[in-house]
Computed example of a mutant assay.
Amino acid sequence: MTFSVSVVVITYARPQFVRTCLEHLGRLESPPHEIIVVDASPDDRTKILVAEEFPHVRVLRNDLGPGTMPESRQIGFADATGDIVAFIDDDAYVDPDWLDELRKPYADPAVVGVGGRASNGIKGEETKGLGEIGRLLPDGRLTGNFGANPGRVIEVDHLLGANMSFRRSALQAIGGIRGNYPGTCLCEESDISLRLKRAGGTLVFQPAALVRHVAAPYTSGGKRFDRRYLYYARRNHIVLLARVYGWGHPLVRRYVWSTIRAQSDYVWEMLVRFGPRMADGSRRPFVRRITSPVILTRAVAELAGLVAGFPAGWIARRRDRAMGVG
């Protein structure tokens, strides 16, 4: 059986990336059923570009603006008509056989989601974390390692938002895609995956379904892995665990303790930076030594996010119940 695939590209103020992304989609060996671009930009540059250069592509509007990637995905999903809905970011450029490889695992009716590999051009990423691709760990943390290549299809717990797909019927059955993962939008794709797993579905990682991920940060404020990122990473993770598993689940308290223990790494780094000698034996600049406590502000950001996750999770769970979304 051949499954029809709707491809949804989400974007914010990056028309140049959208152009390259759509050019690669146009070179697929098997074309998709449809391509939908969901644009949250503050201007019409992307809309105009797509209309002029890719008239077969449908453009939908997300008026909520930056920091609303899951809302953009839901807008695209609600409009899609394919058997499978595949999501890629505007900076993820597909290989010609991407769609064919993405389809293959769906021959198993138990498979409700298939994710592909994202090559970031980082040396050694093909072998890094081969044993922990897309896993939910016992302490509540999530592993990535989506640049690794195990050489075969493997079962996983969650998928990478830049290269993931789902059976439309399975996603409809759980109420679609939930929003309320603000800031850097971390954990929003994991929310979809973990809910589908809880509903009894199987998710797999297909390394042959490859995208080249430029991974340039969005211009919606802040830099990747800065203190803002750390804050929302912890905040959204607590929200994720609470929404999917409930406050009483052991994963919630284990994640809290693992986060608190992890802050000792910043203390150790501060002490190392305060030392009089560099790793090569040279003398460390005095200004570098006296400013070493600044590293502890990263711990403050993480712990603040952890605390903020509790009221945010409570509000999100209340909204979910009111909307009947599981």
Rank of each mutant, 00 (worst) to 15 (best):
V244L: 07
F225H: 12
R284F: 04
Y255C: 03
M278N: 15
L251V: 00
N236K: 05
L210K: 14
A308G: 08
V244G: 02
A299W: 06
R228E: 13
R261S: 10
G275P: 07
S282L: 06
F286G: 04
K223Y: 10
E269S: 13
R235Y: 11
V211N: 05
W268K: 15
W257D: 14
T291Q: 15
L271H: 02
P217R: 11
V272A: 13
R289Q: 14
L251G: 00
Y218C: 09
Y245T: 06
N236C: 05
Y232C: 00
V252H: 00
V272Y: 03
Y229Q: 04
V239D: 07
A215W: 12
V211C: 03
S264T: 12
G281Y: 10
R254S: 10
A308F: 03
Y218K: 05
T259W: 02
G281M: 13
E269N: 14
D265E: 11
A299E: 07
I295D: 01
A304Y: 08
E302K: 15
G281S: 07
A262H: 07
V239Q: 07
A308R: 12
A216F: 06
R234T: 10
V300Y: 08
R235I: 10
R227M: 12
A216R: 08
Y232L: 01
S282E: 07
P293K: 05
G221F: 04
E302I: 13
R253Y: 08
A308Q: 04
G222L: 03
R284W: 06
R243P: 02
W247F: 08
D280F: 06
P276M: 06
R283Q: 12
F225Y: 14
K223E: 13
L271W: 04
G221A: 02
G222K: 00
Y231W: 09
H213A: 04
P276L: 03
S258E: 02
L251I: 01
W268V: 15
T259L: 06
A279T: 12
R212P: 00
I295E: 03
I260P: 05
T219P: 09
H249V: 08
R277T: 13
V287L: 15
L251E: 00
L230Y: 13
A279H: 13
K223F: 07
D280E: 08
Y255G: 05
I238P: 06
E269Q: 14
I238E: 03
A299I: 03
V214C: 00
E302N: 11
R212D: 08
V300I: 11
W268C: 11
R283S: 11
A215N: 15
S282C: 02
A242Q: 14
R227Q: 14
A216C: 08
A215P: 05
R283K: 13
G246P: 04
A242P: 04
Y231C: 02
R235P: 09
L230F: 10
G222P: 03
T291C: 13
V252S: 01
P250G: 10
P293R: 01
W268E: 15
Y232V: 00
L210F: 10
G281W: 09
N236L: 04
P285T: 09
